[in-house]
Design a protein around this nucleic acid. Structure first.
Lengths: 209, 209
DNA sequence: TAGATTGTTAATCGATTAACAATC
DNA sequence: TAGATTGTTAATCGATTAACAATC
């Protein structure tokens, strides 16, 4: 399956996932595309199209079984797996990410943190020790890392990325405002906070018009 | 102008902005849509279409003046203005946002922080004092707030939002995984970190196929 | 069975890309 | 002027929505 599913569809999957977890918590057993679309503020048609990208898992005349649908989406998103993660740049954002509880549920296991700043190196954040950045290449040599959370200074972002790529990291969750250059099939997921704030500014200004 | 510009276009503006700041820093004086598209990995056609949503500011045969184009995009994004901001939920993420230097440049001025936790209330983060959450309604009564950065627990997100709306906050930058219900024309900008991580998981899994 | 709701095809809508006359 | 590159219209592509036969 999975010929080439559009980014728009993938971007909606986590929302389906969240909604289904909610429904399951509430003890709801079945749900129709129409009900889902009401929650999502989209159309029943889109919901069905989305699911049918992966081979529909509903039943005519019935709808979708919440447990089963949730399992499927979990599987599609790969949330059954366990990911080994590291944090590069253990300042404010890096530490916030280390402390954030939500990630471990999805199977994202923080294994190590790194920083340049001698004041930060050696700290323990949420039971994970901050190592000196100079140790990163050796660490990558010795340990298989799935995802690196990149929260370093803008100036160092690309250089650190190159080290991570050389070390065989499979994905980079990028919190810097830099559009990283990568080779090969390394996955980059950007969280451009500044962009998000600027977009908000645009719409706020719109209010005044 | 500005009839109804698509979200896709708006989402690209911060990237143009970043690129133009870079070019200006490098002393570049002019740039063509073709050059910009090469940096953006898009097409020259799209670049020109994007700018022409706001009334083109190029010159035939020449291209775009970097300084002028940057000014225009800055103006469109409303980055000349000054925004009064507060942080609700001053845990890890709230504090990281308070400490983040990048925001003040864009005119986002942090005025106050709030939290429920007595261990956090009273702290000073980046020279801003954390107030008790119970003081929020009075604060909003007394002060005009443009943007609230929402970094509270998932469980409290909607309730806090209701307080913010009642207090006349114009926009909410939402770091909770909740899809907030809002009335009126309050602007919501979501930073769904978990969604972003799940999307990354999807593409990582794809590698293995 | 009859009603409900899916899976799926067809129609529409919007966004991206191509083309080219206008003009600096 | 000739070359370059815009602004803008037209063509294409892709995503969303509508419609409906299949079927639980």
């Amino acid at each position: 399956m999975n010929e080439k599913i559009s980014k728009a569809v993938i971007a909606r999957l986590p929302k389906y996932y969240r909604i289904l977890v909610d429904l399951q918590d509430k003890g709801v057993k079945r749900v129709s595309s129409k009900e889902l679309s009401a929650i999502l503020k989209s159309t029943a048609s889109q919901v069905r199209q989305d699911f049918n990208n992966f081979g529909g898992f509903g039943q005519q005349g019935y709808g979708y079984n919440v447990d089963e649908l949730l399992n499927q989406i979990q599987r599609i998103l790969g949330l059954g797996s366990s990911y080994k993660t590291i944090i590069i740049g253990s300042g404010n954002i890096g530490q916030a990410l280390a402390n954030y509880k939500g990630f471990s549920n999805g199977g994202f296991k923080l294994e190590a943190m790194f920083d340049l700043n001698p004041k930060i190196v050696g700290l323990k954040v949420n039971d994970v020790k901050v190592l000196d950045y100079s140790e990163l290449p050796a660490y990558l040599e010795a340990n298989e890392v799935d995802i690196a959370y990149l929260a370093v200074n803008e100036q160092n972002a690309q250089e650190v990325t190159n080290v991570l790529l050389k070390g065989g990291v499979k994905g980079i969750w990028n919190f810097t405002p830099v559009d990283l250059e990568v080779t090969g099939d390394t996955v980059i997921e950007n969280v451009h906070l500044i962009d998000s704030l600027y977009i908000m500014s645009y719409y706020l200004k719109g209010e005044a018009r």
